Amino acid sequence: MRLNQIIITASATWFYSGKVPKAPGTAGSLAALPLGWILVIAGSNTTLLLATAIVFIYGVFVSDSYSKMIGIHDPGEIVIDEVAGQWLCLLAVPLSGSWMDIAWMLLAFVVFRFFDILKPWPISWVDRRVGGGFGIMFDDILAGGFGMILLALVSHFAEGFLK
């Protein structure tokens, strides 16, 4: 395998987390959480938002290249799209470096996977109709956006409850 193929594969599969035999999307979402948490704690939500945008743009190209390289449109092992979507969900929860971060990240994980797996409209429409790297990435961005809205509501109401 040539170096560029190794880089494309490692990127598209989020450092090979998408190569697990069962539930690669779930593995990719879990693999996204530690770095997402670090980006917020060491930086800010703005840092995570910028990283999400970078991963999305890079993911469009790398997922398109990987799917062409192996000859399958949107293969399950491409999980860089789950990374971008999962990080969007993390933007809506109050990460602070406390033990509560684990609960918030678990909730963000469950909510993102819910929308990513069930694909309510318009996510399902994008998944079926939009092709190439953009289509591979965009349905997960929508799932992350839906999750972000739900988590923002939960976070808002939890803030009042936890005080």
Rank of each mutant, 00 (worst) to 15 (best):
I54F: 15
V62Y: 08
R129F: 09
A103P: 00
F109C: 04
V110T: 08
S96W: 02
I80Y: 02
V93I: 15
G76Y: 02
L106R: 00
L118P: 00
I54W: 08
F115L: 05
V126S: 03
E77G: 06
A51G: 06
T52I: 11
W99L: 07
W125L: 09
I123R: 00
E82I: 13
D116R: 06
V93N: 09
E77Q: 14
V111K: 03
V60I: 15
I123F: 00
V79I: 09
E77S: 12
F61M: 12
D64F: 10
L33P: 02
W99R: 01
W121C: 00
W104S: 08
R129A: 10
G97N: 03
S96P: 01
K68A: 15
V111L: 07
V62M: 14
P94N: 11
I117D: 10
D101F: 01
G97A: 03
I123S: 00
V111N: 04
G43L: 11
V62F: 12
F61D: 03
A32C: 06
V111A: 04
V111P: 03
I38F: 15
L35T: 12
L118N: 10
F61E: 09
P122I: 01
M100I: 02
R128S: 01
R128Y: 00
L39V: 08
D64I: 10
V111F: 06
T47M: 13
S65W: 14
L88D: 10
L106T: 13
A103W: 10
L107G: 05
S67P: 05
I38P: 02
E82G: 11
S63P: 06
D74H: 01
A103G: 08
G85C: 12
I54Y: 08
L90K: 08
V40Y: 07
A42I: 03
L107V: 14
V83K: 07
L95A: 11
L48R: 04
